[in-house]
């Protein structure tokens, strides 16, 4: 499919999904919301980390910062503006840390991005406590579920569309070049540092905005719950399980994983983690190409 066709397909999917608040029950809607949220997180993670093979654990930091933007500003700003601001804070933070740490590679990069996220969490805790004498913030007057759903849907579509455009652009080419051989890309005239910072910052818009969009669902915002490292871990897990170098893989994987884990949780309330663990191990060992490889093979067989 060409980029134009992919964009058209995304838009079509979006149009269908937009009807969900009228069709689904509250529970199914919030399940759909989770699927969308993780799809957007996984796609935006894979946008930068897929082609470059960087392993970023900063997603929960962007998400948490976004959530705090809402917590700090929802009284004075409309919801949509707060979400936008959350995304921009994500971008700014990513550009800042990207400039400082993108020369690190492998596990060092993973650990330092995680460390920077935790550092931010604890700085916010300290600031809030010392200067505002509070440990958390209360959000009253939250928008209704349909409004949150549509906001997250728009963000998800935006993430997918951005990913499509990046892949088709010179930026995507440069990122793949960096992933294959950074020195070679440099000798070919790519300003690798600038490219990496740009892409890393761009990919951080979505987790930031999603944090801002989702925070209103929890009434009480405290650092430990919105900077929850598991949000970042699960994003990485889903993106990699789906195939981080593909476009469709992280989306399929995020939806699959959200639905399966919810199904197991409700159906087997005491052993779902065990089943989830086994499923995960089996998938990685016996489906090393990711869930996307399943689709691709099937597609080929059909054709």
């Amino acid at each position: 499919m060409s980029a134009r066709e992919q964009l058209a397909a995304t838009l079509a999917c979006g149009a269908v999904l937009a009807a969900a608040p009228w069709l689904l029950s509250d529970f199914l809607l919030s399940l759909a919301l989770s699927c969308l949220m993780y799809a957007a997180l996984a796609v935006s993670w894979a946008m930068f980390c897929g082609p470059t093979h960087y392993l970023s654990l900063a997603t929960s930091a962007f998400f948490g910062l976004g959530a705090y933007v809402t917590a700090w500003s929802l009284e004075s700003l409309p919801y949509g503006v707060a979400v936008l601001a959350g995304g921009l804070i994500g971008v700014a933070f990513a550009a800042l840390i990207g400039a400082a740490v993108l020369h690190l590679r492998g596990a060092y990069f993973a650990v330092i991005t995680f460390g920077l996220g935790e550092l931010t969490l604890h700085l916010i805790t300290y600031t809030e406590k010392t200067y505002f004498h509070t440990a958390g913030r209360i959000i009253s007057d939250a928008p209704d579920n349909a409004a949150i759903y549509w906001t997250v849907l728009v963000l998800t579509l935006g993430a997918v569309a951005t990913a499509i455009l990046v892949r088709a652009s010179r930026l995507g080419l440069a990122l793949r070049g960096i992933g294959a051989d950074e020195e070679r890309a440099q000798t070919l005239g790519v300003d690798t540092r600038r490219v990496k910072i740009l892409a890393f910052a761009l990919s951080a818009f979505f987790p930031g905005a999603l944090g801002a969009a989702m925070a209103v669902r929890w009434t009480y915002i405290e650092p430990l719950s919105v900077f929850n490292p598991f949000i970042g871990f699960q994003t990485v897990l889903m993106a990699m399980l789906g195939g981080a170098h593909t476009l469709i893989g992280p989306i399929v994987s995020a939806v699959f994983f959200s639905l399966v884990s919810e199904f197991l949780r409700l159906r087997f309330p005491y052993v779902f983690l065990l089943l989830l663990g086994l499923l995960l191990i089996a998938l990685i060992l016996y489906l090393p190409g990711g869930l996307a490889s399943l689709l691709r093979r099937r597609g080929r067989a059909d054709a």
Binding site: L55, G106, A107, F233, V236, L237, M240, L241, V271, F272, L273, L274, L276, G277, L278, L279, L280, I281, I284, L285, P288
Partner: peptide, 18 residues
């Protein structure tokens, strides 16, 4: 590195649940 990280997640869920 990547796959062992993912398997580690599986093991984490498994051992905790046991």
């Amino acid at each position: 590195e990547a796959r062992s990280l993912l398997v580690g997640f599986g093991l984490m869920f498994l051992v905790q649940n046991v």
